[in-house]
Amino acid sequence: MQVKITNLKKSYNKHLVLKNINMELTKPGIYLIAGPNGSGKTTLLEIIIGLRKPTSGEVLINNSTPDTLESKRAIGFLSQQNSLRRSCYVYEELKLVSEIYSIKNVNLPEYLSKYNLDEYYRYKTGKLSGGSRRRLLLAMTLLPMQEIIVLDEPVSGLDPFSRNEIWNMITEVSRDRIVIVSDHYLNQAAQYSDYVYLLDSGNVVLHGGIKDVNSFLKKSLVVKGRKNNHESIENRLRYLGIEIDLKVSGTVYSYYINETDKQKLKDLDIKDCNLNSVDFEDIYFYYTGKYSHDGSEENG
């Protein structure tokens, strides 16, 4: 199993959305494609599965182009929207998948029980909650047991509990398959992913194993303050002899600090700012100067 992307570029009306993307995925695991809305994640995933054509460059799925039947047999795809027929029953949607992929000897209600959906077997999909619909779509995507799975924001719009539930399911299947997942809830996604590609404005700004990416950034602490008091925070940090690296996003001022300066921070008055360990969202911000989302739901 292999996904190979070489010099991939994609533009819409002269606007370059993906700028020279290169990737070679050969090992099983979860590959996180991370980035804020508009960073090119969906475009990249939809080129991989053959829905969109690249402007230049090449994508090969097990040495075949994505639009071939061989590639389609090898790749399962979950789109961003809950793409279920509202007037269909759960069992009808599953049966359609099993008939198209000629899947036999699978007890569908039993299969659904793995996703806690067996009680909804005879429900119309329109009556399911958002989380259940997402779980059903994931169950449908994973039913044919393809070796490459592409999931476009599988946990988007779900509550933290449902997000964790779906991430656990994804982790389970990633042991022997390449699972490419896009998400903008970076901290949660990073907990489950094995590899990461950070996308920003169509470029891969950082990639590697999740642990490697965490260690690339030598700063381990971050002090965050607001625009109205940033000068005071900065002066206090400099007074303590702390080496700082400043990144600004809107009214948020983030001062990245080396691990070696941790002791000096004990004397810092933090009543008007926050001191935290650097998390994955901070790493993304450090490299792109942007947050992947507003962070309001980041508590999973």
Binding site: I49, G50, L51, L69, K72, R73, I75, F77, S79, Q80, Q81, N82, S83, L84, R85, V97, I100, Y101
Partner: peptide
């Protein structure tokens, strides 16, 4: 609009 067609097109069918 509901991306159902997107799902169908990614199935291994003509």
């Amino acid at each position: 609009e509901q991306e159902i067609l997107k799902r169908y097109i990614t199935y291994p069918i003509n």
